[in-house]
Design a protein around this nucleic acid. Structure first.
Length: 671
DNA sequence: TTGAGGTGCGCG
DNA sequence: AAAGCGCGCACCTCAA
């Protein structure tokens, strides 16, 4: 463990080198770097460079945050106090602003070594360190490796923290040894630990990361995952590019929305308290349950899913029947008199919290830099956080309630919060999504001939299934059958019980018998059931299963083998999107049309210069069809708008059949 | 005070 | 034998 010299970093050029950074927080766009650690045994280099001095304070950096926090009422609630604590925490944090001269001394050395295509840059959650070091993974020519992703690929069930991976694969627990002393006083404030502790701690993390790579790479080769790993690393570069680019958030829209929410919350709370007769904390399920059942003399819904002894089941379908019974589906099903008030109140509060969070998270220029995590989901799907752009309420509600405050089925005003996320001036948002993505992958993976035929004919696969099962009953009826079919297909594929499927039919007033429909479904698409059985048997025998992409999935328990059907479809679709989006980005890089700025499982959001939209949109959609991968296209829907919340269907006006976009794909991605 | 688990809910 | 799946976020509750 030594302090690094600039020359030490330069000596790592062309060699495998593990890096780690210490920072004042988790957000590269608003937090600072404290120091950098390096471990490169082939150059004999191992150590830490401290980049931070405590007596330089960059107050400007925190200004945009403190301005917003200053508007909060800190005295009122527990939440307010927590925000206050966060503020104090943050103000302490910025005292560790990097000392510019030392950063200017060390960082260029890092930038230098990544210019060598033989350098192998290793990191645990490499994207994080790259952001803080000012490294653009999508531009630098060196090789990269992320040990968190290696861990995820070797066994998707494992926790992905460095300490956990070390414990599992290196059988050691070195982190605790270095952090314990500092942890006593300043657990989450590494800039207060002192240089010596940080030196040991950070260098050790680099050593562990390097050893993890050495240990896991042979496993990756044994599992024949080397090729898929290179695809993942290309994707990782793209994910960092998405995060770096960011998503513009309109400050005024958020402020207006919050004001609207505040007004409605006052009214809705009054309605609720008046109806019950007293004030209480409605965010506590216990108190809410007492208020809307006991106090009002209304019977609490009882769990109808019981076993042979009358004991309520704890199956997924029964899980909505909690002891408090205040969930929205229950309030709606039993038509509780306060359902609208409660549901509106919950939605308003949640959206208010989102809008506030956006204002806190945005950078000084007004952009959100959400984090896309390739190891967040056991299936291999992406997860998203800070903020989670994959969970933002859509334009249309699931529950159509006649409410005086929040409207009916459509979210309007501040409630369509997707409108706060908009494009830069001169650009528009282009959304391309895969139509019926999971149903199509089901057809491909199962090889079911009728489903494959539908797909090759470029049919609406859910509609085709519905007509096949329920017959052609006219336009309106068919549309309804399509909705039934969707729920049925997913339900059956992912293991829904007959009882739950019937419950679903009853809830949606579907006049059908679950057992009969299921039988008819399997009778019509004869390839499906044998494929289910083969797949589950394979999982039970082998302990896991391999996707089309090469990725492995393992169940937490042998009894959960049935979840593998969902995994290979959901995760397989995620891997498909990863491949076609990596290609799409190559097209954007070659043409300069714009950027990818968000990924929502089966949908990609691009920010495209207005003058290129007519040609870019259909070309990107065409790339995303990925015809060559399975020999059948994944159909797409294109929408364009000024914001995420105002997308409208896109009319194709340019014939792109003359454009050979293949020429843009200089590096083949997967094949 | 802190962390884990439960509840509830948005998205796909 | 039994079973829709996968996330993140915020709050409350209760134990340590």
């Amino acid at each position: 463990m030594t302090l690094l010299l600039r020359e030490d970093i330069l000596a790592c050029k062309g060699l495998p080198v593990a890096i780690d950074t210490e920072t004042t927080g988790l957000h590269w766009y608003s937090d600072g770097i404290i120091g950098i650690g390096i471990h490169c045994p082939k150059a004999g280099v191992s150590g830490y460079a401290h980049l931070c001095r405590y007596d330089t304070i960059d107050w400007g950096k925190a200004k945009h945050k403190t301005e917003w926090l200053g508007q909060m009422d800190f005295s009122k609630s527990k939440r307010g106090r927590r925000v206050m604590e966060e503020r104090i925490f943050f103000e302490t944090a910025i005292q560790a602003t990097p000392e510019p001269i030392r950063a200017a001394h060390f960082l260029p050395a890092v930038w230098e070594i990544v210019q060598d295509p033989h350098t192998l840059l290793i990191g645990h959650n490499l994207k994080f360190d790259a952001h803080f070091l000012g490294l653009k993974l999508w531009e630098i020519p060196c090789l990269i490796m992320d040990t968190a992703i290696l861990t995820h690929l070797v066994d998707c069930r494992l926790r992905k923290s460095l300490a956990s991976a070390e414990n599992k694969f290196l059988s050691s627990d070195s982190k605790r040894a270095h952090v314990s002393e500092a942890d006593k006083r300043f657990g989450k404030m590494p800039w207060m630990w002192g240089e010596k502790v940080l030196e040991d701690y950070c260098t050790n993390d680099c050593v562990v990361t390097y050893q993890l790579a050495e240990t896991l790479m042979p496993k990756i080769r044994e599992m024949d995952l080397a090729k898929f790993l290179t695809v993942q690393m290309k994707y990782l570069r793209l994910l960092q590019k998405i995060e770096w680019r960011g998503f513009r958030v309109e400050e005024k829209f958020c402020h207006d929305a919050i004001a609207e929410f505040d007004r409605n919350i006052v009214s809705l709370e009054r309605d609720l308290f008046d109806a019950v007769g007293y004030t209480f904390d409605y965010r506590s399920s216990n108190q809410l349950s007492d208020a809307i059942y006991e106090s009002l003399g209304i019977d609490k819904p009882k769990n109808p899913f019981v076993d042979d002894w009358g004991v309520p089941k704890k199956t997924p379908a029964a899980k909505i029947y909690t002891k408090t019974a205040t969930g929205t589906p229950l309030l709606v099903k039993h038509d509780h008199p306060l359902k609208t008030t409660i549901i509106d109140l919950r939605e308003t509060i949640k959206l208010k919290e989102y809008a506030e969070k956006y204002l806190i998270l945005r950078d000084r220029e007004g952009y959100l830099h959400a984090s896309f995590n390739p190891t967040g989901a056991i299936t291999g799907r992406l997860s998203c956080s800070d903020p989670n752009l994959q969970q933002l309420a859509a334009r249309y509600r699931k529950y159509n309630l006649e409410s005086a405050y929040t409207g009916g089925s459509e979210r309007v005003g501040g409630y369509n919060l997707r409108r706060s996320l908009c494009s830069r001036p001169g650009y528009k948002i282009v959304s391309v999504d895969h139509k019926q993505q999971e149903a199509r992958l089901l057809a491909i993976l199962s090889g079911e001939p009728t489903l494959l035929k539908f797909m090759a004919e470029r049919q609406d696969i859910h509609m085709a299934i519905a007509i096949q099962v329920w017959g052609d009953c006219g336009k309106e009826k068919n549309k309804q059958h399509r909705e039934w079919s969707k729920a049925t297909v997913f339900g059956i594929c992912y293991g829904m019980s007959d009882e739950s499927l019937q419950e679903h039919y009853n809830k949606h007033s579907i006049d059908a018998n679950a057992v009969e429909v299921k039988a008819q479904f399997f009778g019509t698409f004869r390839g499906l059931q044998p494929w289910f059985q083969r797949t589950m048997r394979e999982i039970e025998v082998d302990g896991g299963i391999r996707y089309w992409s090469g990725r492995y999935w393992f169940p937490y328990f042998p009894s959960e083998a049935y979840k593998g059907i969902n995994a290979i479809i959901q995760g397989g679709a995620g891997d498909f999107l990863a491949v076609v989006l990596t290609r799409a980005d190559q097209v954007l890089t070659a043409t300069g049309w714009g950027y990818l700025i968000s990924i929502i499982h089966d949908e990609a959001l691009f920010e495209i210069k207005e003058e290129f939209i007519d040609v870019a949109a259909p070309v990107l959609a065409s790339v995303m069809e990925g015809f060559d991968i399975f020999g059948v296209p994944f159909l797409t829907d294109i929408e364009v708008g000024d914001s995420y919340g105002s997308l409208e269907p896109f009319e194709t006006v340019v014939d792109i059949s003359q454009i050979d976009w293949q020429e843009y794909l200089r590096t083949p991605v997967f094949q």
